[in-house]
Amino acid sequence: MKNNYADHSAEVNNGERFKFGENWARFLSALDESRITIAEQSLKTMLGRESLEGLRFIDVGSGSGLFSLAARRLGGEVLSFDFDPLSVQCAKVLRSRFFPGDPLWSIHEGSVLDPDFIDGLGQFDIVYSWGVLHHTGNMWKALDLVTRLVQPGGDLFIAIYNDQGAISRRWARVKKLYCSGPFGRWLVKGICIPYFVLPPLLRDLIKLRDPTRIYREYKRERGMSRVHDWCDWLGGYPFEVAKPEEIFKFYKAKGFELQELITCGGGLGCNQYVFHRSPQSS
């Protein structure tokens, strides 16, 4: 498989890319059985399946490796890949911890923007890419190329940042500043972390509720960590967005039918989509 380390390092050094892998490596210290179980349940709910037994599952931009692990525990044959070398290592750490020597979980380094790499992977029953394709630097190309991985009759499960217009453009500038160097990173953290933390904390204190509630409830959504997702949000550059109707029309034209949709209500965050590819499509 093609090694993208030089390309990745150059983008990070030029302030064009967040160190996603570093953040996910830190997240692994918080990973426990309850988070894995929640991740499994989120896959079962969105895909409408209790098991992935006998199915091929690809995790496009595997990040921490949590959902590759969840898919493998549900019985799927899993292929994980990521552009960030440290994210690749995260998946390998989880495989060695939970499925040592497993021939049904393969892990690679590569880019979803590389057509030759994508074509060399084959096709899968389930293509999963949660919160990844908008960080590639060319989202619409990534949204296009990922369809090559979906076999006829297969499913595509993606999550893409919601387009909030001017607000999204301002966030793009914030993320770019974060990745520009130490000064930009600490400036963004100093301004934005209180923005995220203080309002819910004050509401809970006023209502005499447990202020740790926002962290525990967040965990129940996908097994993720609010703190690590905050870091991912603040530094997550490149950064692109799309309206739900744009994604729907894009995939409808390619022969995909929308099966499941969960939006973020027009606000901050990702809209989640599950598309089904017609068995007759080529």
Rank of each mutant, 00 (worst) to 15 (best):
D163I: 15
D116I: 08
S68E: 06
L66A: 04
W230S: 10
E16P: 00
P244H: 07
Y273S: 08
R209G: 11
S80F: 10
C192R: 06
A71D: 03
C192G: 11
D116H: 11
K252A: 14
A25V: 08
S68I: 11
G181N: 04
Y215A: 09
R95G: 08
F81C: 06
P199Y: 04
R97D: 09
V12N: 02
I107H: 02
W140S: 06
G190N: 00
V274C: 03
G137V: 15
V60R: 05
G154E: 03
S111L: 08
S278R: 05
R209W: 07
G61I: 10
E53N: 07
E217R: 15
F99P: 01
F98R: 00
Q41E: 14
G48S: 03
A91L: 11
R17N: 05
L86V: 15
S42G: 01
T212M: 13
E40D: 03
I193E: 12
S68T: 07
E257V: 11
V174N: 06
P200L: 01
I262M: 11
Q89A: 15
C231V: 12
D82E: 05
L261W: 08
K176D: 12
S96F: 01
V146K: 02
R26T: 12
E77S: 14
L113E: 09
C231H: 12
V93W: 05
F239N: 08
I118E: 09
W24D: 05
A159G: 14
H8V: 12
W24S: 09
L133V: 11
V78R: 00
A91P: 01
A159M: 14
R35C: 10
D210W: 15
S29F: 12
K254E: 08
S68D: 02
Q259G: 14
G223E: 04
L202R: 09
H228V: 09
I167T: 11
D7Y: 01
L52P: 00
G75A: 08
I107A: 10
R203L: 09
L261H: 07
L201T: 14
F250E: 07
G21W: 04
V188F: 03
I158D: 07
G267E: 13
P211V: 05
T147S: 03
Y178T: 07
G223L: 03
K219H: 13
Q41P: 00
D155H: 09
I167N: 01
A242D: 02
R95T: 11
P85Q: 02
G122S: 02
S180R: 01
Y215D: 07
L198R: 02
G236N: 06
S29L: 15
S62D: 03
F248W: 10
V88K: 03
I36P: 00
K249Y: 08
P182T: 14
H134L: 06
Y128E: 01
S278I: 09
Q89V: 14
N14Y: 03
S80H: 05
K92R: 13
A242G: 04
L55G: 01
T263K: 08
